[in-house]
Computed example of a mutant assay.
Amino acid sequence: MMRTLRRRVRPRWPLLTLAGISVGDALLCVKPAGFVRDCLLDVGLPRAVWPVLPVVKTAAAAGLVAGTEYEPLARATAWSLVVYFGLAMGSHLRARDFGRNLFVNATGMMISSCALTAWLEHRRATS
């Protein structure tokens, strides 16, 4: 029997919740809010890279939303977020930024991304 190309993810709320958070994060990076600007400066991210952040975060949100209809895209996006937040945590550690930016923001998003990825991988393994 041929597998269908389109495999929907249900329930959708885990993907849509993280997509909403990513959109909010992207909006905060368009013209970086004070605490976002301070965070980017603290980790030493070059200003030339700052305009790319909203694009990447919006693309992640789009991948998660589209992933509700095509599970391989959801998994690829979730894994990409794990890599992104792993790099973010590494940047905080390298900069010795052990405050709220690391422990609440980057770590919280890493945990959320890992949980989503684990859930999607579990779905794949048990289907």
Rank of each mutant, 00 (worst) to 15 (best):
G86Q: 05
P14Q: 12
V9P: 09
Y84N: 05
L87S: 06
F85I: 00
G86H: 05
T4M: 09
C114P: 00
A78L: 07
R75H: 05
W119Q: 06
V65A: 06
A59H: 03
A88M: 02
P11V: 07
G20V: 00
L87R: 04
L45N: 06
A115Q: 04
A74T: 02
R100D: 15
V49H: 13
L93H: 10
R96M: 08
V36M: 13
R47H: 15
A88F: 01
G67Y: 02
H122K: 13
R7F: 14
P51K: 08
N105S: 14
T107V: 10
W79N: 00
A118S: 03
S112Y: 07
V104R: 12
A115E: 00
H122I: 05
M1P: 07
L15P: 00
G34L: 04
T68E: 03
N105D: 13
G99Y: 07
L41Y: 13
M110V: 02
V30H: 04
G34P: 00
W13D: 07
A74K: 01
L102C: 06
H122W: 11
P54G: 10
A48V: 08
A118Q: 09
N105I: 03
F103L: 13
V43M: 07
N105W: 15
V82G: 01
L120I: 06
M2H: 14
L102W: 02
D38H: 12
M109N: 05
P14H: 11
R100L: 15
S91V: 04
V9T: 03
G34A: 11
P11T: 13
L27S: 03
V56L: 05
D42Q: 11
H122F: 13
R123M: 11
V104H: 12
F103Q: 11
L73K: 06
G20R: 09
R96K: 13
T107N: 03
R37H: 15
L15E: 10
P72W: 15
R3G: 11
C29T: 03
D25M: 10
W50D: 01
R3W: 11
L18F: 10
P14W: 12
P51T: 05
A115S: 04
H122P: 02
H122Q: 08
L87H: 09
R75Y: 12
L120W: 08
L18D: 05
R123T: 03
C39E: 14
F103W: 15
L15F: 07
F98R: 06
W119C: 06
S91G: 13
G44K: 08
V36R: 06
P32K: 03
D97E: 12
A62H: 03
V55G: 06
A118H: 04
